[in-house]
Write a protein that binds this DNA or RNA. Structure first.
Length: 91
DNA sequence: TATCTGACGATAG
DNA sequence: CCTATCGCCAGAT
């Protein structure tokens, strides 16, 4: 399975995330070189599966995604990120 | 080439 | 705080 340029760009940026980091889909898209492609980023993360730190990506409001929010909250907390009621608490 | 899809975002009600 | 819409983008059919 070959990754498209877009997917590689997203992946490349995602790999640089550190434990405790939290970025939004929009930011990831922009930092990957595809501003405005937040939605496409979400699709990409889903397609990539769970082989990458997808849990460090949340929506613009710090809300966890409507699928594995429990799993995501669990992983975030494990990295020291404050999470309350499916929401990341920014300091 | 035409449409549909969705781990998004911003706005309006 | 919630749902409804519209605009956006890349991928899949």
């Amino acid at each position: 399975m070959e990754l498209t340029e877009f997917e590689q760009a997203v992946l490349n940026r995602l790999k640089e995330t550190q434990p405790g980091d939290v970025l939004t889909y929009g930011e990831l898209a922009a930092e990957a070189g595809y501003p405005g492609a937040a939605r496409a980023v979400g699709n990409t993360l889903r397609n990539l599966g769970s082989d990458y730190p997808w849990w460090r990506v949340v929506n613009s409001q710090g809300r966890l995604h409507p699928h594995g929010s429990l799993e995501q909250a669990k992983r975030l907390k494990a990295e020291g990120v404050l999470v309350a009621n499916d929401r990341v608490t920014f300091s």
